Measured scan of single mutants.
Amino acid sequence: MSIQHFRVALIPFFAAFCLPVFAHPETLVKVKDAEDQLGARVGYIELDLNSGKILESFRPEERFPMMSTFKVLLCGAVLSRVDAGQEQLGRRIHYSQNDLVEYSPVTEKHLTDGMTVRELCSAAITMSDNTAANLLLTTIGGPKELTAFLHNMGDHVTRLDRWEPELNEAIPNDERDTTMPAAMATTLRKLLTGELLTLASRQQLIDWMEADKVAGPLLRSALPAGWFIADKSGAGERGSRGIIAALGPDGKPSRIVVIYTTGSQATMDERNRQIAEIGASLIKHW
C-alpha cells in the first residue's frame, strides 16, 4: 500500500482519535458579512469528516447552483462504474471539434489522439474542462443518470439537468442544476469515506481534487503551510461562485467545507476574496 493510499485508508482512524471539535460562531459572522459585502445569498456548511456531524452552517438547506462543483460527483459516478466493471479508466475516447464547448483548455489539445477516461476526469476536476465533463456525462448516460446515481446514494436534493455550459445559467428560483450545502457536503463525505467506492477509487477521487489547479484564489489562499486540501470550485452566471473541499491540518483532511453564493453584482475577484476570507476565519478558529 502506498503512503497516499495509507493516508486515505486511515482518515477515519486518525479522526477518531482527534480531540473533540467545537464550532466557532466567528466564522458564521464572516459568512454573514460576506453576504453584506456581496449583496447576495451565501450558503455555508462545515462537517466533521469522521462523524458527519454538522459543526457550523448557514442557509444549509437553500438551493444554490452547483456550477462546476458537480464534476466531482460526476467522476465519482464514473469511478463507481469502474468498480462495477462497467468502465475502464484506460479506455480512450475520441471526439471532434464539434464536441468542444466553451472553456476546454485540455480537451482542445487532444482532438487528434483523444483522451482516456482517467485523463478526462483529471481534466474535468483539476482544470474544470467543460468538454471533458460533457464527454464523461455521455459515458454514464447524461445528466439524468448522474441525478439517479445521487438518488441511489441517498441524495434526493442534488440534481443535474443540463450539460456544460448551460448548467451554469443560475436563474433565480430555478431548481435545475442545483444542490443544497448540506446535501453536497453529505454526498461528498460519502464519496470520500464511505463504502460506495473502493479504496482505490476513493484515493483516485481525492487525488484529482488535491491536484486542483484553478481554485488557488479561494480556500487555498488562506491555508497555512502543512495543511491538506482537496477541492473543486465552480463559477456561473449572475454572480455565482462555489467551492467544495476536504481539508485539515497535519497533512490530512478532517472536515468537509461547502460554500456557495449566487445573485451578486460583485466582480469575480471580490467573490473570490470573500470566500478566501471565510476560509481564513475557519482556519483561525479551527
Rank of each mutant, 00 (worst) to 15 (best):
F13G: 07
R238G: 11
R241A: 04
T186N: 13
I256S: 01
K284V: 10
D177F: 01
E46N: 10
P20S: 08
V106W: 07
L49F: 15
T158Y: 01
D36F: 15
H24G: 14
Y95A: 03
R81P: 00
K30T: 12
L219E: 03
W208C: 03
D269T: 11
A266C: 13
M184V: 09
A182E: 10
L197N: 05
L205N: 01
A170L: 08
V8F: 14
M268S: 07
W227N: 01
D129E: 01
T179G: 01
L79R: 01
S240R: 02
V8S: 15
D99K: 08
A230S: 06
P25G: 08
E210R: 10
L19F: 15
D177P: 01
T178S: 12
A222I: 14
L47A: 09
P65T: 03
S80T: 11
E62N: 07
A245L: 03
A185R: 00
E87F: 08
P172R: 11
S51C: 05
P181I: 04
E35M: 04
E270I: 13
I243D: 02
K30D: 05
H110R: 10
E102T: 13
P65K: 04
V78M: 09
T186D: 14
L192Y: 06
A230T: 02
M67G: 13
C121L: 05
P65S: 05
E35G: 05
L146S: 01
L150I: 14
T147M: 07
M66K: 00
V117L: 11
G43F: 00
T27G: 04
K30Y: 06
E237T: 11
A15F: 15
G216H: 08
R273L: 13
R220W: 02
D212I: 02
I243L: 10
A84D: 12
A77S: 10
E164G: 00
A132R: 00
S264T: 12
A123L: 03
T193S: 15
T198A: 11
D207K: 12
L100V: 10
E46R: 04
Q86L: 13
T261G: 03
I229W: 02
W286G: 02
E62A: 09
Y44D: 01
E237R: 13
Y103S: 06
A77Q: 14
L89T: 06
L188C: 09
E35Q: 08
H285P: 02
M184H: 02
I171C: 14
I171K: 14
G114P: 03
V42L: 13
G194P: 10
E270C: 12
I243G: 01
R59Y: 04
N130D: 05
A133C: 05
T267E: 11
E164S: 00
N272Q: 05
G142A: 04
Q265M: 12
D207N: 11
Q274Y: 10
G234C: 06
V214Y: 05
S254V: 12
G216E: 07
K30M: 12
W227S: 02
T187W: 04
H151C: 10
